[in-house]
Design a binder for these strands. Structure first.
Lengths: 322, 322
DNA sequence: TCAAAAGTGTTATCCTTACACCCATGT
DNA sequence: ACATGGGTGTAAGGATAACACTTTTGA
């Protein structure tokens, strides 16, 4: 009646307009998340354990941290830890508790096998900043093939992948990944079933995304979806910003996370109303055109009054031709 | 390195304008949530295990279910399962995964020691339908005493308990409970420390709420906060309604969950826009005054298009004199 | 006929959307 | 001077909040 408890960390940052995640890659293997076992006799809390081993594995100190989800299902919904076992082999069942961490500095001491990876490497269909991504276009016909002409599946792919005029919902990252898994399209699906059915012929990683160890891509999808949702009702984006930033840099960071382009002035007007940032009078000279004013996050408002996140006034130009 | 994994279920329903939760009470003990151990060798998924033992313990079949949070901290943040051990005794550490379940029918086969309890029994300060509840008024001075005159704690109690003109935020149920715990006001706090410091003299249960076994009251607080938040962005309230209902009944159900009074017409207008309900032409004769039209939830929209929850147009009459 | 609850109309205000334009700097 | 990004004004439309009012039943 006992189980092993694992902790997985999704540590995210924004770097050059791309959302990146801290990954660990053993030579010759798929990428994975920083992962460690929880020691019930030694660790007082999950969070402390997490901070400890993330620092050990990546020499990186976590800042903002929150619990995501606990993955414990057997079979195709959440396979065993990647020890090469079949799902039927229940010798060493691992329950894994996923955590999300945010940090402003992706540029950091790389230790051993840890790297920052662009999340689009794993979810190429999640970036709509330059209109409908190539991956979605390429996935449309395999998805329709899987769905067939009947409502239940068809409605689902329409809703999740913005087909037939459905609007794109950036938060449903996990549901999209799970659908691709269910459709047997992502490599993990066939891998977890022990090399069984190949429903579709293989598509390149540039469309399906790169596979990860164990159920780490599922955990990553959970994290991205949660972060995208949370931006709107908590000012978490500032956990990913340097202490001083320009409004454009802030907007580009939000865009990188959300994967959509925002309307500049409406973004600023909404931001102004929240009173979350404060101009510093000084300007950033390195922007290319006119120097931009520097701002800082007024962290002090957090304790003082109810704060919501940022509104996301979408730009509907080339960004949507569904 | 192994641990025992427990599953706790918060099953909620609305009954006679009160939000109720399924509790289990051994004679002579505090109330608890339906709780069971997860068997890594026998249970394929958390959810299946949960459904199994909830039915076994309460003869009740779960409908809607979602994972809440995994509680694994030692010490004052989440004590051991209630075996009477001190926090220092780490012999049988239990990690517990909390689940939220919703159901329309609280009136159901009571088995053995299971009962539906009003949540206000555990959180008397959470109901603002008749203005500021007596519990909040009574808690104000002990809280101020604990906070002292300095910003950090003072800001926190103001924000959480709507003091000094702060608006009440119904979602922060967990934070309020944790603050009361931290302040040593709720019985669990002193109990978990092994009968140590009694910061304040005792207040009656009608103000502090009834204690629960282990960390079950913390889990219940998490559930209530999550449900209150979720109502606004997912149509989950319908999981707590009978197939046919009047709009007033729906509004009263939302009010019971949220603990606040809503503006009738604005609630209806907003509901109408969502297209989530459909009039049936028939009327309910038993309302007392004029018969009300019966409606049903258009569950079919769920798969077809993006759906949000209900907006909560608050009524600010007697309901707020903070 | 009156209480009780259902159900409706209307307005002021605010927020969101969308459009077009001006400003400051480096090359 | 002009390209580049920073920064602003304003008007239309829709959602929200707050008013007060009519309708239909049972006692």
């Amino acid at each position: 009646m006992t189980a092993v408890i694992g902790l997985s960390a999704v540590v995210m940052a924004v770097q050059d307009d791309r959302t990146v995640v801290l990954t660990v890659r053993e030579p010759g293997q798929s990428a994975g998340l920083p992962f460690g076992l929880f020691d019930p006799d030694g660790d007082r809390t999950f969070e402390l354990a997490l901070r400890r081993f993330v620092t050990a594995q990546t020499r990186f100190d976590l800042g903002y941290v929150e619990q995501l989800y606990t993955f414990g299902d057997l079979g195709r919904d959440a396979p065993l830890a990647d020890t090469g076992q079949k799902a039927e082999d229940r010798a060493a069942r691992v329950i894994s508790v996923g955590y999300l961490g945010l940090t402003p500095q992706a540029i950091d001491t790389h230790a051993r096998n840890s790297y920052w990876s662009d999340i689009l490497q794993f979810f190429p269909w999640e970036d709509w900043r330059d209109g409908c991504p190539a991956a979605v276009a390429a996935l449309e016909s395999p998805l329709r093939l899987w769905a067939g002409p009947t409502p239940p599946r068809l409605d689902r792919i329409r809703l999740l992948f913005a087909l037939d005029g459905s609007p794109w919902n950036e938060e449903r990252v996990l549901e999209r990944y799970e659908l691709l898994y269910e459709a047997g399209l992502v490599p993990e699906a066939t891998r977890d079933r022990g090399e069984t059915l190949l429903t579709q012929r293989a598509l390149p990683d540039s469309i399906l995304g790169e596979a990860m160890i164990s159920d780490h891509r599922r955990i990553l999808a959970t994290a991205l979806g949660r972060l995208r949702g949370k931006l709107k009702y908590r000012p978490v984006i500032f956990e990913m910003m340097a202490p001083e930033f320009t409004l454009s840099a802030l907007q580009r960071a939000v865009e990188a996370v959300v994967g959509m382009t925002l309307h500049k002035q409406n973004f600023r007007r909404a931001l102004e109303r929240t009173d979350l940032v404060e101009g510093l009078g000084r300007r950033d000279q390195d922007t290319g055109g006119r120097p931009a004013e520097l701002f800082r996050f007024r962290r002090e408002v957090l304790g003082t009054r109810p704060v919501s996140g940022l509104s996301l006034p979408l730009l509907r130009d080339e960004a949507s031709e569904t």
